[in-house]
Design a protein around this nucleic acid. Sequence first.
DNA 1: TGTACATCAGTGAACGCGCGTTCACTGATGTAC
DNA 2: TGTACATCAGTGAACGCGCGTTCACTGATGTAC
Lengths: 213, 213
Amino acid sequence: MRITKQRAAENRSRVVAAAAELFREKGFGGIGVAGLMHAAGLTHGGFYNHFKSKDDLEAAACEEVFRQGTSVIGAVAAPEKAADRADALAAYRRRYLSRRSRDATGASCPMVAFGADVSRQAEPVRQAYAKGLRAYLDLFARALRSGDGDAQPTPEQRRRAIAALATLAGALSLARSVAKADPHLSEEILTSALAELEGAAPEGGGERPTAPA
Amino acid sequence: MRITKQRAAENRSRVVAAAAELFREKGFGGIGVAGLMHAAGLTHGGFYNHFKSKDDLEAAACEEVFRQGTSVIGAVAAPEKAADRADALAAYRRRYLSRRSRDATGASCPMVAFGADVSRQAEPVRQAYAKGLRAYLDLFARALRSGDGDAQPTPEQRRRAIAALATLAGALSLARSVAKADPHLSEEILTSALAELEGAAPEGGGERPTAPA
DNA sequence: TGTACATCAGTGAACGCGCGTTCACTGATGTAC
DNA sequence: TGTACATCAGTGAACGCGCGTTCACTGATGTAC
C-alpha cells in the first residue's frame, strides 16, 4: 500500500506534531513510539521509515517546539518602535504567566517542558535544544532593546533578557509543579513573578512601583 | 537472615538517601527499584518490606530532598541581624548559581531536579513536593525580611522571595540544560542571573548598580 | 538467665507487561521503456 | 500515452529487554515462658 510522496511527508509532519505535543505533556519517557504513531493516525511499524530512532524523533520534536516558540517571540521583537515592543512584551509576559498557559502542558514553552529532562537525553536532542535556546534568547534580547532603530541589543539588555527568561520559566515551572496539590500557591507564584517583572520594567524605561517616591 | 531493627531502619534510610540522589540525577523514570536497592547495598526483593510501591519511595525521597533544602535555607534565614542575613543570602545565591552546583545534579535543589516531572507523578509525590515547596518558600521569605527583630516577612518581601526563587531555579535549569552542548551559553546564563539578583538587591536596602545616579 | 518458637528483613527466581526495534509482507506509486 | 516492473510507506506480528511487583524460602532476631 505505497502512498504518495506528499502524503508520506504529511504523515511525517503529523508524527512530529504529535510528538511535540505529547513529549511536552508527558515527558520523553511518558509516551512511546506506538502511542505517538497512533496519535498521528498510523501504526507503529512504519515509524522507522521516517526516523532513525526514538531519539531522532525527540530531536525533531525539540526543533519543532522551538520553531513555534521563536515564531511567537519573534513577533514580540519585530516592531520598529520601542513602545510597540514594550507593549508586545508586556502582553507576552501576561500570557506566559497565565493560568491558561500553566495548564496547557502540551503547548508549553520548551524550557519548562523539557528543562529537567533534556540533559538526560541523547546528544542530538541536547544539540537541538541548545540551538533552539540560542535562537530564542537572541530574539528575546532583541525584544528588550530600547531604541527605535535597528540597533542590536546591548550586553546589558541581553543580560536582563536572560534574567527575565529565567524568572518566567522558573515561575511557570514552579506554578505548574504545585498546580494540582496547591492551586492557591500556584496562583501566588504566577502573580508574584508577574508583578516583579512588571515592576522591574524590563523595557528599560520604567521604574519599580515600590521605588522610593 | 533476620537483622536488627536498628539495622533495618538504617537500610531503609540508605535506600531513601540513594533515591534522593539518583532520582535527582536521573529522573524518577531513569533509575529502577533494582538499581536503587543495589546502590544502597541490598537486593531488590526486599524493597517492599520498606515501601508500598516505587511511588511511595518517590514521595519519601522528595521529602528527604526538601528536608535538606530547608535546612540550608533555614540557616540563611536564621541570623538575628538583617545585615548577617543579607550576607548569608548573597553567599547562597553565589553558591546556587555556581558551576559546581550546576554540575552536581545528584545534589541539586528539588525545584530544578523534579520541577518538570513532579506534576506527572502520583498524588503522594505531588503532595510531598507541594508541602516541601511551601516550607522552603516560607523560609526564603524570612531570609528577605529587612528588620533586625523577629518580624514576619511582609507581603512585599514574600512576593520578592517568590520571584527571586523563580529566577534562581529558572537560571539553574536553563544553565544545566545546555551545559554539555553549549558551555559558554550555560556560563552566561549563570552570571547574568546572578548579576540581576545582586543588582536587584533582594535584601531590600540596596540599589541597582545601573540605577540613575 | 535459659529455652523454644514465632517473626520478619533480606534473598533471588519468577511473573506479566510495555517498551524500542526488526521483519516479512502488501499493494499503490513512481519510473523506465 | 500505455505497459511492466521496481520501489517503498504502511501494516501487524514478533523479538529481546528491563521494568515494577510477587513469592517461597532463609535464618538471625525478638519474645513468651
